[in-house]
Computed example of a mutant assay.
Amino acid sequence: MFYRLSGIKHTRYASSRALWPVTADRRIMQLLVALALLAPFFLSDLYLTSYMLPWLIWTAAALSLTLLMGMAGQLHFGFAAVLAIGAYTSIHLTRAGVPFEFALLGAGLMSAFIGVIFGAAALRVKGLYLVMATLAMQYLVEWVIINVPAISGGAQATLSTPDVTFLFMPLQSDASLYYMALLWTVVVTLLLLNIKRTSFGRALVAVRDKDFAAAVIGVDPVRYKLLAFFAASFLGGVTGAILAFCYYQAVTPEQFGFNVSIQLVAMVLVGGLGSVIGAYLGAGFVLLLPIVLTNVLAFLATYEWIPISFNLIAHIPLMVYGALIIGVLLYEPLGLAKIYDNLRKYFVVWPFRHTQS
């Protein structure tokens, strides 16, 4: 079969530590990369900007939160505030004449600075108490953005993004915006895949599992918790800037409410806590599934195949979507990434299922 471990012989440490040592995995990744690069050529502008573009950006946001919650084990229920800081910072910097490349860096650093301040609560509390600290960040940032006109222009104001260029290429067409989001998502993906194999990643895992035991073996929990908040907030700030410029193109405080933070946590949990591929699956599940369900029900109701009013169609997908989340977590608490891993292992030993450990 095409998916086998036989014939794979590692003679060097570099080959054994490769991201995709199995040939079939490499071919799958090459196929996915090719499809992602060619998407603007075979997808309409509607599907590109309404489905693919937001899915990539929210995947990058979920990956940023995965670094904090999945690898470091630090709960964060105010990550939408991190995105908001990055979005508003990048808009004000570009309006002041700062190049977009440096505006992205400034957005990440501003989010990281504020994120570390609230993340310092993780040095003394954990669990539900840490959740309350991050909730305080969410509501405090919301209040500041709404009530300081110099930031948002007012509670009901809309802040439009100026025209910018990235590496001397204008970000105006749908394809250019898509490739910008794709580039950033790939960068964050490769970053997390490699962090998991470094001493920094192993230290985060040690702090996540038991911070007291990590301190005994020489890992400083204070340092690595702050580094985790800094790194995740930096990635989240840049993602918020890309979200503003590549997707929203005009931001309001309502776009970064508490419900967005809950959706991000749901993406990480449903996809699989600490899993990179789980962030992709979780973002697709949370973001795209309600849209697909709504379209399917609207199609069935249009041809009167099911007796349902269009007023009820707006509520049924949310109920089904919530039931599916509960079903996924009950059937496989480790998320969609574990379901994918089970399927992958099945093909590794197929048809000799009894050999699977």
Rank of each mutant, 00 (worst) to 15 (best):
M137A: 12
M137T: 10
M137C: 12
M137P: 03
Q138Y: 03
Y139V: 14
Y139W: 14
L140D: 01
L140V: 15
V141E: 06
V141A: 10
V141Y: 01
E142Y: 12
E142D: 15
W143F: 15
W143V: 10
W143I: 11
V144Q: 08
I146C: 03
N147V: 03
V148R: 11
P149I: 02
I151Y: 07
I151C: 09
I151S: 10
I151D: 10
I151W: 07
S152K: 07
S152N: 10
S152Q: 07
G153M: 06
G153W: 03
G153P: 08
G154Y: 04
G154P: 08
G154T: 06
G154Q: 08
G154R: 03
G154C: 06
A155Y: 07
A155I: 05
A155K: 12
A155G: 12
A157T: 05
A157S: 14
A157M: 06
T158L: 10
T158S: 13
L159N: 02
S160D: 08
S160M: 08
T161K: 03
T161G: 04
T161W: 01
T161V: 11
T161R: 02
P162V: 06
D163C: 00
T165R: 11
T165Y: 01
F166Q: 02
F166H: 03
F166E: 01
L167N: 08
L167Q: 06
L167A: 13
L167C: 07
L167H: 06
F168D: 02
M169E: 09
P170M: 06
P170S: 08
P170A: 06
L171V: 13
L171H: 04
Q172M: 08
D174H: 13
D174M: 04
A175D: 10
A175T: 14
L177Y: 02
L177A: 13
Y178A: 04
Y178N: 04
Y178I: 04
Y179E: 06
Y179C: 09
M180V: 04
M180P: 00
M180N: 01
M180Y: 00
A181W: 00
A181T: 01
A181E: 01
L182M: 11
L182D: 00
L182K: 00
L182F: 03
L183N: 05
L183M: 15
L183Y: 02
W184R: 00
W184L: 03
T185G: 10
T185L: 11
T185Q: 11
V186N: 02
V187M: 14
V187N: 05
V188Q: 03
V188K: 00
T189K: 01
T189I: 00
T189R: 00
T189M: 08
L190D: 09
L190R: 09
L190M: 14
L190Y: 15
L191T: 14
L191P: 09
L191C: 14
L192D: 01
L193V: 07
L193S: 10
L193Q: 15
L193F: 10
N194F: 11
N194Y: 12
I195N: 09
I195Q: 09
I195W: 02
K196Q: 15
K196L: 10
K196W: 01
R197Q: 14
R197D: 11
T198V: 05
T198R: 02
